[in-house]
Nucleic acid binder design. Structure first.
Lengths: 223, 223
DNA sequence: TCGTGTGAATGTTTTCACAGCT
DNA sequence: AGCTGTGAAAACATTCACACGA
């Protein structure tokens, strides 16, 4: 598999479900609801209740029979596992359309992410949505003072590898790669690919399979 | 599981790899390279060569021993499976930062997607990156002439359910949901969630597990 | 010998079945 | 009765091992 497939002891699939749990459980908590059952969460998120309980067990949360899980404990545990309960500094590289949209996204505050600065070959205005945009050649010089471990990469696919190499050389530990290019970096650098083409591919394939009769495998008789 | 987990006969994981194969194989094809081995693709995409061959087998492409796979056949087969070899019309709902960034994204042309129009409660300028933006109340009236089966949903999470309901009622068959909200719709409507919080969660968890010692499971002896 | 094709083995995730707590 | 916790089974995906073709 492409990377270790247990993240800090948790299965990847569990980690992927955590932000969804967090969203609805935070909402309930804010609304004053103190407990919630796995059945209710499963209904809201379209998950099997057993899966919800297994996931919660993995992050160390025990529920109470007949009662459910305490929303406050859940929020705390999930935030802790994702490290979303403290602020992480990040930079953004490539202030094009997508980069600017991410600079304007308010939701990162809920995820412990603070974009401190952006870099671009052509930093037109010098700031976007209140975040300073610096010329790309100042990257290495400015990085130390920014205290960012993580970079959001939104340059063109062609420019991706070289930008990523510079980020890695400058000490960035994790790259959130929106470019769609496959990055070749030292294994110590964590690369998280966020290629929207993948999601579009799944949607396209589901739509085009929609209503079409899937031929039964040889040897099986259609019911 | 949350949906059927074979899409038109292919495993979901295979479908997710198809756009990556397509990107590099198109590049090779354009560069005049006629054949490629599974080993070379595996190296470029960090995949096991056997996996590459199994995937290609599933989409009906056979390679030739000692030679490899024909790039032209691969491009055609992958595009066919994703329905990316013909143009699909789409609309976009919610022309905020993210919506505008997607309206400006040129890459959709490579994926058979054409955004014909956008809708927004407050359609300021009336057009973004050359694509007309209409007031939201005109959605139902304009949809038939646009011929779109698919909608890209980029409204706020709070507005997501109601907008999705209207889209479904108006005959949209597939919704690419960027809002992070879980949509409750008739099962005939295909919803593809594209929540960036999921990717961020995985990256955050990997970063925060980075270098930390994972305790060995009980009964196992650390090497 | 190089590279494909594939049955078998392995590993992982989900689902089932049911015991236990209140 | 209602809800959690969990071992066991099933489903699924990946990797191994090797036969075969050019």
């Amino acid at each position: 598999m492409v990377f270790g497939y247990r993240i800090g002891g948790l299965p990847l699939t569990t980690v992927q479900r955590l932000p969804n749990y967090l969203r609805v459980v935070r909402e309930m908590h804010r609304a004053g609801r103190e407990v919630v059952s796995s059945a209710r969460l499963g209904e809201l998120l379209r998950l099997d209740p057993v899966q919800v309980r297994k996931d919660f067990g993995l992050i160390g949360i025990v529920g109470r029979p007949k009662i459910g899980f305490r929303t406050s404990e859940l929020v705390e545990a999930i935030e802790g596992h994702l490290n979303w309960n403290r602020v992480s500094a990040a930079i953004l590289v490539g202030a094009g359309h997508l980069g600017q949209a991410l600079l304007g996204y308010r939701g990162f505050a809920n995820h412990g992410l603070e974009i401190r600065a952006a870099f671009d070959l052509d930093p037109r205005s010098g700031e976007v949505h209140g975040i300073p945009v610096h010329p790309m050649h100042e990257l290495e010089a400015r990085l130390p003072e920014l205290g960012a471990r993580m970079a959001i990469l939104t340059v063109s696919p062609e420019a991706a590898q070289e930008a990523a190499r510079r980020l890695a050389a400058a000490g960035i530990e994790g790259i959130w790669n929106f470019t769609g290019a496959t990055l070749d970096l030292p294994p110590a650098v964590i690369v998280q690919n966020q290629d929207i083409a993948v999601g579009l591919a799944v949607l396209s394939a589901r739509l085009s399979a929609q209503g079409r009769v899937v031929p039964a495998p040889i040897g099986e008789v259609p019911v």
